[in-house]
Design a protein around this nucleic acid. Sequence first.
DNA 1: CGGCCCGGAATGTGATCAAATATTTTCCAG
DNA 2: CTGGAAAATATTTGATCACATTCCGGGCCG
Lengths: 234, 234
Amino acid sequence: MRMTAQELTSHDMPGARVPAHELIYRHLRALVLFGDLAPGQAVTIQGLSDRLGAGMTPVREAIRRLIAEGALEFQGNRRVSVPRLTVEHVDELIVARQWFDPYLTERATTRATAEDLARLTALDEMLDHAIAQGDLRGYLELNYRFHGEIYNLASAPILAKVADGLWLRFGPSLRVVCGRIGTRNLPDKHKDLLAAMAAGDAAGAASAVREDVTQGLEQVRESLATMCGPIDSA
Amino acid sequence: MRMTAQELTSHDMPGARVPAHELIYRHLRALVLFGDLAPGQAVTIQGLSDRLGAGMTPVREAIRRLIAEGALEFQGNRRVSVPRLTVEHVDELIVARQWFDPYLTERATTRATAEDLARLTALDEMLDHAIAQGDLRGYLELNYRFHGEIYNLASAPILAKVADGLWLRFGPSLRVVCGRIGTRNLPDKHKDLLAAMAAGDAAGAASAVREDVTQGLEQVRESLATMCGPIDSA
DNA sequence: CGGCCCGGAATGTGATCAAATATTTTCCAG
DNA sequence: CTGGAAAATATTTGATCACATTCCGGGCCG
């Protein structure tokens, strides 16, 4: 089968054959995560099956998996679509990440090695570069990888997986919001965060990431509140 | 297809045909949640397909879904099994529920109506009855429903779903632990919790549920630490 | 003890049937 | 005669299954 998208975060053994349903899953996941699928957009099994040149069973498995993760939504009848985020949902995501991110960052800070910090710093520099270039897609991917890297450093696989799953929820809307705001106006607290981590200041790192998360999601919240108020083209 | 287990929490419209993959999912989910599947036990697609008298496609969908929720584990090669919980995992689950449960309980307390409280109280009485009867399975189901009811009252669907998903992780081990301890020695803080909720004391309710959660999972942790130390029959 | 073979299990495909949506046709009121 | 709602039809899509294919693991033989 042909799979055009770059399979990012593919830490597979070099000889390990990855099954189609796994590839389709990653493909779709990236599509949702980086807003290539608009909120509310319908996702059909047969459409994907045809477009990706794969059978329907693997597509079906991938979709069920994404639904279980909250990346897609089962519309009651038998329709599947990209969820439309509401302000209430964002509020939930804010409180969740306001707990998860600081906690995981605290753990990551006490465990991070010099190489880990170097990797994070490198990611952050690439991120700045993407912002300077006005590369929205690059910004979204790098920001995700930056935070995901911290999750992994916390040595808490279950919590990391749950926190990671939260990103799928606001991915589509994040793209819309950032496109509306423009990449220039995307301040983050990554510098403070990295400095605190380098100093071994777990509480400081936690506090920095908390501000970063709050700032980012609050912007989503604002944008959603003003946007969906007047016009709601359902 | 024949489906032996009671489909609990099936709030389906009376005329709505529930697809097979959904039924299989609920069936398997209950099996994991209440420890009918032992930790480490292998789960095969064909085995389930034969045993449930269903095609393999619905079974595959259900399994992928459970894997995404962490109820089952993909063993790298193409094997699927019930996860074997480690002490580290339980530690993660403890901190997670120590945040989720109090937060959701707080929200639930401010929103609960008299009927809601009556329903919770009734559930708790059935729970006490199950304990008195030494009915382990009944205890596990009712305890799950009790806490799930609170999650739903919080009006935070995303957080409720995540919190609910955590139960799937310790379900199999909980059964083992409770069987080891005996149903008589299963104290809980439900009475304190209900009293605080009835009084509208959100902070008190949060505190009570926090103790309840900590107490329960700490027991799992202990049991796991002493049990898996000497013998680890992999 | 290592390589080979075979059974069984997972993966992948397409066909078939049912359900839901979209489209067209029909029919009646104004 | 026209507009529009309801009914009938057509098309798209989902659900399930049977089978072909691939692959892993365990047993057997040298």
